[in-house]
Simulated assay, not measured.
Amino acid sequence: MPAATRTAFPNGAARTAAEAVAAGLDGLPLVVLDLDRARRRYTALREAFPWVDVLYDVSALAHPRLLAALAGADGGFAVTHDQALPALLAAGVGGRRILHATPVAHPHESRAAYDAGVRHFVVDGSRAVEGFAGAPGDLRVLLRLRPGLAPRPAHRAAGGMTAEEAVSTAVAARGLGVRISGLSLTLPEDGSPAEYVAEIVRSVGVAADIEAATGVRPRILDLGCGFPGRSGDRPAERAELARAIRGIVAPATSGVTVTAAAGHAVTAGCVAVVTDQARSDVDLATAGELIDVGAEVVVIDTGSSPHRFPLLRLPRARGGSEHRIVRRAARG
């Protein structure tokens, strides 16, 4: 779990951002979740990338009203945390538009996900593929590729396989009767269009090598979570990346399905704190801390008055306390 954001006080003490907010107020503020803005941002992403099936990364914010709103907008979802799928199911969201990109420790976990409607699973290596031996024919397995980019000190080491490991894993999977249907990329959340292009070009080469070794070409390319990198807030770069995806992958003619998971690009600016004097946007970590210490949540949705929502708690981490924000492991 990431460390709480720290804020320096004039007296030299350090407190969390939530404590800093609460300390200057007579009581806690309201935490406001703007579903209208979330829908608009999600729709804008899909319109900017018409050749990409944009999925919402549940780990960004797992509030049940948000999940239901995006599902109502014909949205798909990416599960990148072990408590994200339970959050979807608790919100009444299921079906086959779910990409399961969380490592599964036991075959019964993948079976439970399959029974919940999941059909697409991302795996990190050959051992994980073995757990899908004998799986139903409509289940699809994607191999996560380790990025070819130079590692960044601020980011944790990326998982996944090298190109050579991906090919050998695909060969081994064929022997087990498991069909490798696609590849999944791993890029930093601030990835540039140039970095996306380099990784997409690399993945096309890996897919060709897998076809040469197995006779089956992967037909799904997942661009990973954190999509669309820094271009999420830069229209010119967003257009550049969209053109590159269309030009390199050619989804309309190649038969390749492109998916991507967006979290911050959907939730940015959708959470705020409101006092009797002002309203200000906050990051999800600060909002989560405020909810932890008892702040009430208000959900704003077009066509209805703001609803004060009881704290429907969602697990923060396996075995940990409960919270609506599903948190990722701390970065190294």
Rank of each mutant, 00 (worst) to 15 (best):
residue 174 R to V: 07
residue 259 T to V: 11
residue 88 L to H: 01
residue 91 A to E: 13
residue 191 G to Y: 00
residue 13 A to Q: 15
residue 54 V to Q: 11
residue 124 D to V: 06
residue 236 A to C: 01
residue 212 A to M: 12
residue 180 I to S: 03
residue 190 D to E: 13
residue 43 T to A: 15
residue 195 E to Q: 01
residue 48 A to R: 15
residue 142 L to K: 04
residue 4 A to C: 06
residue 71 A to I: 08
residue 330 A to Q: 14
residue 244 A to H: 02
residue 278 A to P: 00
residue 284 L to Q: 05
residue 277 Q to A: 15
residue 147 P to Q: 07
residue 225 C to A: 15
residue 91 A to N: 04
residue 69 A to T: 11
residue 82 D to F: 06
residue 4 A to S: 11
residue 244 A to I: 04
residue 67 L to M: 12
residue 88 L to R: 02
residue 24 G to N: 15
residue 263 G to Q: 10
residue 164 E to C: 01
residue 205 G to I: 09
residue 93 V to F: 03
residue 326 V to W: 02
residue 126 S to A: 15
residue 158 A to D: 12
residue 224 G to E: 13
residue 26 D to P: 05
residue 293 V to G: 00
residue 15 R to F: 07
residue 57 D to C: 14
residue 226 G to I: 08
residue 100 H to G: 01
residue 223 L to F: 08
residue 132 F to Q: 03
residue 88 L to A: 06
residue 7 T to A: 06
residue 309 F to T: 08
residue 215 G to V: 08
residue 64 P to K: 04
residue 166 A to D: 10
residue 142 L to G: 01
residue 57 D to T: 15
residue 315 P to C: 13
residue 8 A to R: 07
residue 309 F to V: 07
residue 127 R to M: 06
residue 4 A to V: 06
residue 164 E to G: 05
residue 223 L to R: 07
residue 84 A to V: 14
residue 51 W to D: 15
residue 201 V to H: 00
residue 327 R to L: 15
residue 199 E to T: 04
residue 99 L to G: 02
residue 16 T to D: 14
residue 280 S to K: 08
residue 25 L to Q: 13
residue 80 T to R: 10
residue 283 D to R: 02
residue 22 A to E: 07
residue 227 F to L: 09
residue 196 Y to N: 00
residue 300 I to N: 05
residue 168 S to P: 01
residue 327 R to H: 10
residue 29 P to G: 03
residue 191 G to V: 02
residue 40 R to T: 09
residue 231 S to H: 00
residue 136 P to Q: 14
residue 58 V to Q: 06
residue 193 P to L: 00
residue 13 A to H: 11
residue 259 T to C: 06
residue 102 T to S: 14
residue 129 V to N: 03
residue 279 R to S: 14
residue 102 T to G: 03
residue 326 V to I: 15
residue 118 V to M: 11
residue 251 P to W: 12
residue 180 I to P: 01
residue 196 Y to C: 00
residue 197 V to K: 00
residue 204 V to Q: 15
residue 165 E to I: 08
residue 200 I to E: 02
residue 282 V to G: 02
residue 286 T to S: 02
residue 180 I to F: 05
residue 201 V to W: 00
residue 213 A to C: 12
residue 97 R to Q: 14
residue 146 R to I: 08
residue 190 D to V: 09
residue 104 V to W: 11
residue 154 A to E: 15
residue 285 A to Y: 04
residue 235 P to R: 14
residue 223 L to V: 12
residue 261 A to V: 08
residue 218 P to E: 11
residue 96 R to F: 01
residue 10 P to E: 07
residue 313 R to Y: 05
residue 47 E to H: 09
residue 175 G to T: 09
residue 225 C to W: 07
residue 303 G to N: 10
residue 267 T to H: 03
residue 307 H to C: 11
residue 58 V to N: 04
residue 266 V to H: 01
residue 256 V to N: 02
residue 219 R to L: 12
residue 138 D to H: 12
residue 16 T to K: 03
residue 65 R to E: 15
residue 244 A to V: 03
residue 319 G to L: 13
residue 170 A to P: 03
residue 252 A to G: 08
residue 80 T to F: 09
residue 321 S to D: 14
residue 223 L to Q: 08
residue 93 V to D: 07
residue 319 G to P: 03
residue 66 L to Q: 04
residue 114 Y to V: 09
residue 175 G to D: 11
residue 279 R to Q: 13
residue 256 V to M: 12
residue 144 R to D: 06
residue 85 L to M: 09
residue 117 G to D: 13
residue 187 L to V: 10
residue 215 G to T: 12
residue 212 A to V: 12
residue 197 V to P: 00
